[in-house]
Design a protein around this nucleic acid. Structure first.
Lengths: 200, 200
DNA sequence: TTAAAAACCTACTCATCAGTTGGTCTTAAA
DNA sequence: TTTAAGACCAACTGATGAGTAGGTTTTTAA
């Protein structure tokens, strides 16, 4: 486990560059040479650090992607304040980041699912796990909200979670496509509307 | 315009096979040879019918994809009944089709957007147009609903449309991923919940 | 029935890509 | 200061993919 600092530094640079390129151009349409050019590294370096392109992708998913989703969508709703406020703020912030991101290419998880679904079970397993963590977090948040009287007790937490996830995934696609700012605004207004209907 | 019947027949077979494969495997990861093998045709035949792979894709989008989206998501909500019922039934039916579709790979439009966004402006232009038609149809339906007293007049039709589209796009992704039937059910329950909040 | 146009085929080119081979340079410990 | 492991490089291989060239078969019209 005691990896040298140099190895880890390069390794990390490679992972970061990979996530960025796979996000922008897609996995299959990004060549290893694309990544190496960007990093000023050679083929030899790549295969010194990773067994294969797929191994590389899995490493990216297991470290960077998990962290990204966690910090943007999971951690912000784990506190014990009003569930509705937490989720609204969390989504608002994530979408705002997307708006300001020149070169927003939608929600990485969604893009990856579109790319690997039915094509690579191993990768899908990991994407699935990330989605599951998000789902479980939302379910817990909603249950807490019910317990604390912020959300109607007749609401089904699982259903609310799925509905929230759906709408978030979809709005990220729509925002990547055209007019992100206006679409974000409209989305948020209806998200609030939806939450109103969940109040006791 | 007076194309021979044989030409049109083969042309159409090619388009249908292409949409299916591009949907299942993605555009860039499907080779022309894959398509030709499936059709028992040769390279020569392909380039007799289409100028290039991209030309072929555009033809598929402009004919088959437009029609598919139109018949599943646009036409069903153009009638003059209760807007809310129309949309609920339309989504319900589309999702049910997805559930029963062995090999569902999510919402084609979403998959294509994920694949071409930031990579092919020409293709995106056409996908954008399809989305626009859907959006406009939903906006009209909501406005009709307001006029007919099925939807609260304070509702902003544009926002409702974007929210509905978002959630539909997202649930298709989630359904392609795991447990489509349960997820559809949960989604539909919250879609109804949302619509309740839009009633006068 | 024949000839020409339409529809399709075979065998190529050339570029690109994942992965390999056999090295060299760098660093750190002895 | 030497040396061996660690980190990286340059040049290759073999497979695959989009597109082309020049042919053959099939259909249509005279």
């Amino acid at each position: 486990m005691e990896k040298s600092i140099k190895r880890m530094t390069t390794n990390n640079r490679m992972l970061v560059a990979g996530l960025e390129l796979f996000y922008q151009k897609g996995y299959y349409t990004t060549s290893i040479d694309d990544i190496l050019t960007k990093l000023n590294l050679s083929k030899g370096a790549f295969y010194y650090h990773f067994e294969s392109k797929e191994d590389y992708l899995l490493e990216i998913i297991k470290t960077l992607l998990v962290r990204k989703v966690y910090s943007a969508l999971v951690e912000p709703i784990e506190s014990h304040e009003n569930t509705i406020d937490l989720i609204i703020n969390c989504f608002e912030n994530s979408l705002e980041t997307a708006v300001h991101n020149e070169m927003d290419c939608g929600f990485i998880l969604n893009n990856f699912i579109a790319e690997f679904n039915g094509r690579n079970a191993e990768v899908m397993k990991h994407l699935n796990e990330i989605l599951k963590i998000w789902e479980v977090t939302l379910v817990s948040a909603v249950q807490r909200g019910k317990f604390n009287g912020h959300i109607n007790r007749h609401a089904d937490a699982e259903s609310v979670a799925i509905y929230l996830m759906s709408s978030y995934i979809g709005i990220r696609t729509l925002m990547a496509e055209t007019n992100p700012s206006a679409r974000k605004y409209r989305y948020m207004s209806q998200l609030r509307q939806y939450f109103k209907s969940l109040q006791p």
